[in-house]
Design a protein around this nucleic acid. Sequence first.
DNA 1: ACCTGAACACCGTTCAAGT
DNA 2: ACCTGAACACCGTTCAAGT
Lengths: 190, 190
Amino acid sequence: MTPARPARHDREHIIDVAVALLDRFGLPDLTMRRLAGELDVQASALYWHFDSKQDLLAAVSDRIMARIPDVAEGADLLETARTVRDALLAHRDGAEVVMSSAALRPGPSRAQEMLRRALLPQLADADLGATAVLQFVLGHTTLVQQRMHGESHGAAATAGVLDDTARDAAVFAIGIDLISRGAALTTARR
Amino acid sequence: MTPARPARHDREHIIDVAVALLDRFGLPDLTMRRLAGELDVQASALYWHFDSKQDLLAAVSDRIMARIPDVAEGADLLETARTVRDALLAHRDGAEVVMSSAALRPGPSRAQEMLRRALLPQLADADLGATAVLQFVLGHTTLVQQRMHGESHGAAATAGVLDDTARDAAVFAIGIDLISRGAALTTARR
DNA sequence: ACCTGAACACCGTTCAAGT
DNA sequence: ACCTGAACACCGTTCAAGT
């Protein structure tokens, strides 16, 4: 007997599977057809749940950003920025995904709000500052993950990879540190 | 009579046409087939000149970065960063193109060298600082251009666009200003 | 409400073959 | 040296039709 067909997938479940696919194969292989295959469904079925691939990607982006853990009460800028960065690094091509649909939701995100709070005691224009910090984090992390991608199926010497990650960490720390000191200076001037 | 067929295209000329196509239609429409069509050639012909689309895009990226004008002798960080940003803004999706192949050439670019020079009088780790600044500029400009893309064929109200560009300018200025002050502070401490 | 099946209009890339 | 022509293995998206 053929079982009664239940509703098989909802948006949340599809996003789950999309993120899993992203982590395993990366953004270029996250296609509507592969995602549908993973769900045992035709590609066209996805268009009942999402308007377009852009729409799906935006949902994946929101999922990634929603997973940023809350940061302690008086956390400073470096800790907060690292928390955001780590949430992006937690998923393959995470920064690129978020960047590709960040322009679509211009409203202040939770990440931006967290950064704003870390900047508030020091900076008058904490709102603009938080946007700038987020842009740095996105740019930095996208470049870092792009290099990972190149190495995974490239001819990069294994030597130097450790140096690269160490340098990445230093660049990130210096970038945030300079911004933080600059913000403190602005306060001192007032 | 059929004219003798001369060698029709070299890498430089193809890059010219690719950049023109990029400016007119944007990165998603810069396909090998369209580029070939513009050159009155089969798509497969491009693979004699370039190993892959990635290779072509890297060449386009280099072209965009090579067009950054030199900056005055003692130019400060803000002026230098603006010069880099403007070179990216000069081409549709310029920042995204550069970002997508920036990981492939990890060596210090001319842009990074210019930023390093602007940072040198103030910062000990000018090299790492320059990388951080370049990452901010790339992240910022990519997001700005992404929003342009969304507006061009979207339903965005025309109102608010002016506010957006004004806000973008402020975010960029604050981001660079904070880094610059932070760098100065580091010097003062020594 | 949720999905299939088929079609449309594309992609990047390879490769034998031409000139 | 430079390019054609054809093929391969894909894409995102639409839409009538099924259940």
